[in-house]
């Protein structure tokens, strides 16, 4: 059935006003991005052109409800070739930033973020590896600037982003 609907125009403006999202309005749907995209060619779940279309038409809910925006592998193939010089990868980051702020965050991403807050790294170094490193003559790892990092995350409100997520989950 065809539905009558009002397009939520301010959504594209919302994206365009964010750092990273500035070029979203330039898209003219030529499909260069889609044919450049290794992910789109592998799965039907993701098509960059289609997500841009949804953003431009103001389909806010649809954009955030599917997991599509998290499927960009940030290979920049599309961004290199876009004839309108749309910075697609950055727009995807901007979309994810909005999603994250609203609590739509895939689990693996919150794990990365917790690791970052706790260890200053997103991949922890196991005891096994530490021993192994010594054995093969690698220098001991330097200390990580976790304290400084936490201060940074506190100013930007990044830590609260996660707390919110924690409460919700």
């Amino acid at each position: 059935m065809t539905e009558t609907k009002e397009f939520n125009v301010p959504f594209s403006k919302e994206v365009a006003s964010r750092y990273g999202g500035e070029t979203v309005m330039l898209c003219y749907q030529c499909g260069t991005c889609a044919s450049s995209c290794p992910v789109a060619k592998t799965t039907e779940k993701f098509n960059p052109r289609e997500i841009f279309r949804l953003v431009l038409l103001g389909e806010r809910q649809e954009v955030f409800q599917s997991n599509a925006i998290w499927l960009c592998s940030s290979c920049y193939n599309c961004q290199e070739r876009c004839p309108q010089m749309v910075e697609l990868v950055d727009v995807f980051f901007a979309l994810r930033n909005i999603a994250a702020k609203e609590g739509h965050l895939p689990k693996i991403y919150s794990e990365f973020a917790f690791a970052l807050m706790n260890d200053g790294r997103i991949v922890p170094v196991s005891k096994f590896i530490e021993r192994k490193r010594e054995q093969i003559g690698l220098p001991p790892l330097k200390t990580i600037g976790t304290e400084a990092l936490r201060k940074i995350l506190a100013v930007t409100g990044f830590d609260k982003l996660l707390l919110k997520k924690e409460v919700e989950s």
């Binding site: 030529c30 260069t32 889609a34 289609e50 599309c78």
Partner: peptide, 27 residues
Amino acid sequence: GRPTEISHDPESNVLIVDVEDSLLRRF
């Protein structure tokens, strides 16, 4: 659809135009 790339298969000497048919959403 605007092709992203033209490649060349040296063996068969054919060109390959890589494009999305955006109406069918098909590559």
